[in-house]
Structures are given as C-alpha cells and as structure tokens.
Design a protein around this nucleic acid. Structure first.
Lengths: 149, 149
DNA sequence: GTCATTGCAAACGCTTTGCATCTGT
DNA sequence: ACAGATGCAAAGCGTTTGCAATGAC
C-alpha cells in the first residue's frame, strides 16, 4: 500500500545486499511456522521449539517474526489480551467478526471495503493508507434461547 | 474471563442491586468520554482529565472503563501496539480518517460499508451488529515535499 | 576476518492487583 | 455506619532493546 514518492537517488549505491544468512534457528522457526497455518504467539512458538529440542531464544523469535512480517511472509494480528499472533502468510489482509458474548471470531474479507477505504483516503488527499475494521455482534449460538448463559 | 460458577445462594438475593454510586471521578470520566466520539486510550483519558484539573487515578479509569464496557456503554478495540482504545457507544456513527503525522481528522461516511458489515455479519448468523472502522494515512500537507522534516 | 545473527539480561509500557483509605447514601 | 469506590504502589506480561559472544560465508 505504501506507494511513497521515493525519488530514488539511485547512484550506484542502489542495491544494498542484506546478506541473508542461513542458521539453524531460522530454519527451525520456519519449520514450525510451516507445519501449521494457524495463528501462534511468539511465546507459543518458543515453547514448541523448546519441546522439539530445537531451542531458540525468545529474542531471536521476535527478531525473525518481525523480519518475516516486514517482508510479507508472515501475517500478524493482535488478540484482546495484548498478544500478537503470527502465521505464515496465506492470502492477504482480512478483518474480524467477533461475538461479544463468547468471543468466537470469524475472519472476513471485503475487497470492496478495502477499495472504499482507499478511495475515501484518496479523495481527501491522504496517502500511505492503512485501516482497522472490526465487526462486533452476537453469534447465532449466543443469541439462541436454547443456550442459557 | 472467569466470571464462572458463582454458586448464587439465590434465596431472594437474586437481583444483586449493584448500588451504583455517583462520584466526582465517574462524572469526570463520563464527561470526557461524552465530549468526543473518537477512540481514546486509558492513558489518554488520564492525561486529559489531569489537564482539565479533574485528576482521576489510572486505576479508577481502568475500573470504570471495564465496567462501562461490560454494560455496553462503551466499545473497546485494541491497536497493534498493545493499547486498548475506548469510546462511548453511539447509536449513529461515522468513521474517521486520521493523519498519522499531524493528527488531522476527517469524518467520513460509507453507506456501502455499513451494508457490507451488516451482510457479512448476517451471513455468519450474527445479530445485533456494530462495527469499528478507522482509516489512517498521511494527509496532503504532511506528504507534500514543501514541508520537509 | 567480517558482519549478520543470536540470546541473556534488563528495560519498557500498558494493564492488573493488593489493600488501606475515603465517601456517597 | 456500611458497602461501594478510589488510587498509590508494586506486580504481571508480552515485547523491545543493549550489547557482547557466536557462527556463517
């Protein structure tokens, strides 16, 4: 989304090769992330890696997660109790429909909404746009009289 | 989350009148919440109350916010940097387009989005739906090359 | 040898909890 | 007076940062 006006100086110093290195830790983290497409917390990954006998420092996990998130290989979202959850990037950006009674969450998408947000922002001269959309409601289970409390 | 099994002795004690009391602090908090329909963090409210000369303890603010959230008078949502934002629950609403540099805010509406939210919720069997949409970006002024630094 | 990477330990920032004091009613 | 309300101080928690040691190339 960031279509900034980078006036690329572009001399010869163009490509700064990040010089990625392959390490046991990176591989271990990638392996765990790849083994499931569910959202996991950093602490969770830490525990699992440890259980697998592939101990990796928490710091390193956060490091990797940030890196992977930045490069778009991983998606991140935050829960209501302050944790950030990660999973390897499947499709793209989506939003949540949350039951305010039981907390059940459904992931939803709306290309039209994305476009609307973009266009509203553009109309007002805004650039580099992001947005937050959360839908709250009472799910069928919780709304049905059959489910007392 | 554990509001579980209170083995309510339930003689006639069914309705536990919470015996709400009116205090300066509650009124001050309600006043600030009522003065704007934007999302504010607890810390933010704390600062504003303090600025207004109506100092209220942070603990009390969290207390009230939890209470108001539970009774549905306030809506809560969490940002990506681990903060929880609150705003008084309004019936009619519009959304905000906020400049992340200068803070300028534009109120926007989108009937189509309202409908989209409704329909997504309905499709999933949810009722009594509300939603939150906030758009962030950089406004023209802040993005223009004329305003370096 | 160089430089990306790792990870311990400590710092952070928001939120929650313990508990003694205060205050509407 | 009594039960709800308040708020200081300190603990909790996930996350981030400082920085010296490690290891890929």
């Amino acid at each position: 989304m960031a279509e900034r006006g980078l006036a690329a100086p572009a001399a010869l110093a163009s490509a700064r090769a990040p010089q990625e290195r392959s390490t046991r830790q990176k591989r271990a983290i990638a392996a765990v992330l790849g083994s499931s497409d569910a959202f996991r917390s950093a602490q969770d990954l830490y525990a699992e890696l440890r259980a697998r006998g592939e101990a990796v420092g928490l710091t390193t996990i956060y490091n990797q997660l940030h890196l992977l998130t930045r490069t778009g290989e991983v998606d991140a979202l935050n829960t209501d109790d302050g944790e950030t959850l990660y999973r390897r990037c499947t499709t793209e950006h989506h939003h949540h429909l949350v039951c305010r009674d039981c907390g059940r969450t459904v992931e939803v998408e709306g290309p039209q909404v994305e476009r609307w947000a973009e266009s509203v922002a553009a109309t007002n001269g805004f650039v580099d746009v992001t947005h937050i959309i959360e839908i709250f409601g009472t799910c069928a289970e919780c709304a049905s009289p059959a489910a007392p409390q």
